[in-house]
Amino acid sequence: MTSSIASPAVRPVSARLARRLDRHIKERIIEAILFASAAISVFITVGILYVLIKESFVFFSQVPIGDFLTDTQWTPLFDDAHFGIMVLLSGTAVSSFVALLVAVPVGTTIAIYLSEFATPHAREIAKPILEVLSGIPTVVFGFFALLFVTPILQAIIPGLPGFSLLAAGLVMGIMIIPIVASISEDAMRAVPMALREGSYAMGATRLQTAFRVVFPAAISGVGAAYILAIARAVGETMILAIAAGMQPQLVWNPMEPAATITSFIVQVALGDLPHGSVGYNTIFAAGLTLMLFTLVFNMLGFWLQRRYRERY
């Protein structure tokens, strides 16, 4: 470089142009590589849909979709095979409901407390701790549900079986508290200070301001937090596989053991199932159902989150 500046005649113009072209080509190649990396994420989604739909297609060519949606028994590995996804959905619904009964009130209260009552210092400490809590592996929560929470519940509720949706759901609720608290708190913090000041100026207390001004203003963000929590609960696997038992039965009572969509997939994967059998295809049909549900919840959550961001 220096020599070309000192004596331009040494290097002909064409050489410099060639160098520039070189550089341009190199830039283009790098840009293409970076773009390819970003595009891979799209291929992952396409791959997921391709695999789920392909294997489910094989499944539905053997099991009528009407039976799949309406049958009230789920016995895919028996001779008398029944494929009623309702059974697994009931387990998923009951356990998610129990989890939300814990996570929504506790998580919302924590969010309101952190956003409206806590000092900035307390918030700085509490938020990272909550984030750490959400990083604990779910298999450990499963251990906790089966060997710590279940014995305590059995002491309170006599006759509770060793595996139950209640214990698994409770622990799952504890696991998703940080999600609810963190996203709701972000939504409440995004409410402009002027609204709070207006409320205080009218003589409202902190509590009144929190519940009648801040919470309604942040409702779409808080709703997004709840929906993302539902998506998380529906997709949760290990806690249910460990602590909820794996008997597929149509239940609405959380005191009973039951299989969910996710724990059924784990159960089949643990056994030795030949590639291409109906049992093998069943887990993809179950996975497709799961994917559709979480997709709907996630889309709804993101849509709500985006809406509240645009408002202020």
């Binding site: 997921i48 529906v234 784990v266 996975g287």
Partner: peptide, 21 residues
Amino acid sequence: ININNLAGVPSIVFGLLALGL
């Protein structure tokens, strides 16, 4: 949008992707 969606896909679905693909 796709990356946002992927972040919400349950981990077991990634297992199914790996098994099939």
